[in-house]
Each structure stands twice: as C-alpha cells, then as structure tokens.
Computed example of a mutant assay.
Amino acid sequence: MKLSILSLFCIIMIAQWSHAQQRSIIDSKNTEQEIISLSKKKWSWMADKNVDSLNALFDEKSVFVHMGGSWGKDPEINTIKTGGIWYKKADIHSVSVNIIGNTAILLNNITLLAVVGGNEVTNPFIATEVYIKENDKWKLGSLSFTRLLTPNNTPH
C-alpha cells in the first residue's frame, strides 16, 4: 500500500513538473514573440517619427549607441523629432531573442536606410536592443548599432 501511494505521488510530481516545463517553454516563446513585435513597432515608430510612442517605450535611463556617438533618452527623442536622424526603413534580415530573468536581449540583423545630416545612407547593422520588464511593461533600456563589414551576417 505504501509503495502504491509513493508511486502515485511520484507520478503526480513528474506530471506536474513536465507540465510546468512545457508551460515555461510556451511562456518563453510568447515572450520572445512579444519582444519581436515590440521591436518591429519601434522601427515603425522611428520611421514615422512617432516620438510620443517612443517616449513611452524608452526608459528614462536608456542609452543609444550610434556610429557617431552615444547619448540618453532625451537627445535620442530630440534627434528623431528634429530629423537629425530619420530612420526611414529598417529591412530586418534575421532576429534572435534571449530572455534572462526580466531582461530581453534582441539582436536584429538589418539594413538601415536613414537620412543623417540631410544625406541618405544605407548601412548593414546588428542592432542590439535590451528590454527590461517592470510592472508588467517592457521598456527599452539600450539600443546599439554595430556596423557590419559585410551585409546579411546573421546574429548567433
């Protein structure tokens, strides 16, 4: 009798653990898709110069790293608003997301068409986006552009 109860208990525990693992995998995939969708919206908002949506997305302490320098949220919003950089179109070739606790790190392999200082330029980049989840809301903490020497290199 004791052996049967112990066996039943073990089977229940294994089933619950397996279900929790499957739920964790599904939650992780859902979170990855949520981050990918948010990143795509961000590129659209940047192209449309939608600074209100970007202002809500960018964390107050966010940082932006470009080929010509780095700065915080307010200068980035102002750069977009005034057209100092117009992110006209980001062609996304590949994307990967890694979730670490409440942090999501997204790597986009993109070809970016932008207007910088009145000149239209196209560059291949790996864009690294770091999102932090606080109070059930994702905020962008960092956006860094790493120019590639050859286009279409895929992030790992």
Rank of each mutant, 00 (worst) to 15 (best):
W43Y: 09
D48N: 13
G83E: 12
V115F: 05
F64N: 05
I110A: 07
W43C: 02
V121M: 10
N78E: 15
V121A: 01
V115N: 09
W86Y: 12
P75R: 01
A56I: 07
N108I: 03
G83V: 11
N50M: 04
S94Q: 14
A114D: 07
F58R: 00
F58S: 00
M46K: 01
T79P: 04
N119G: 03
D74K: 04
V115P: 11
L57I: 01
V65W: 00
I105E: 04
G117F: 11
A104V: 05
K89I: 08
T122E: 11
E60C: 00
E120T: 08
I77Q: 04
W71C: 06
Y87T: 05
I85T: 02
M67W: 11
V95R: 13
A90E: 05
G117A: 04
W45I: 02
Y87N: 00
D48A: 12
I85K: 01
L113G: 10
A114N: 02
K81M: 07
K49A: 13
V121E: 04
G117I: 05
H93P: 08
G84L: 12
I100K: 14
I85W: 07
I77C: 05
N119W: 04
T122D: 07
N108M: 10
L106G: 13
S44I: 02
T79G: 08
K40C: 01
K40M: 01
G84N: 13
K89M: 08
P75T: 07
A90L: 10
A47P: 01
K61I: 12
T79R: 12
N50V: 02
G68P: 00
I77K: 07
S44V: 00
T79K: 08
K73H: 05
W45G: 06
F58A: 00
K89R: 09
G83T: 11
V65I: 09
V95A: 14
S44N: 08
E60R: 11
W86M: 10
H66G: 03
D74V: 14
I110H: 05
T103P: 08
S53D: 13
G83N: 07
K61A: 14
V115L: 13
S44F: 02
W71A: 00
E60V: 07
V116M: 10
D91H: 13
F58E: 00
S96F: 01
N108A: 09
A104Q: 06
H93S: 14
S94I: 09
L112W: 02
E76N: 03
T79V: 14
W71K: 06
S96Q: 15
N50I: 02
V65P: 08
E76H: 04
T82F: 07
L54M: 05
N55V: 00
S94C: 14
E76A: 09
L54W: 06
W43I: 03
L112M: 11
V63R: 15
A114M: 10
D91A: 12
S44G: 10
L107G: 09
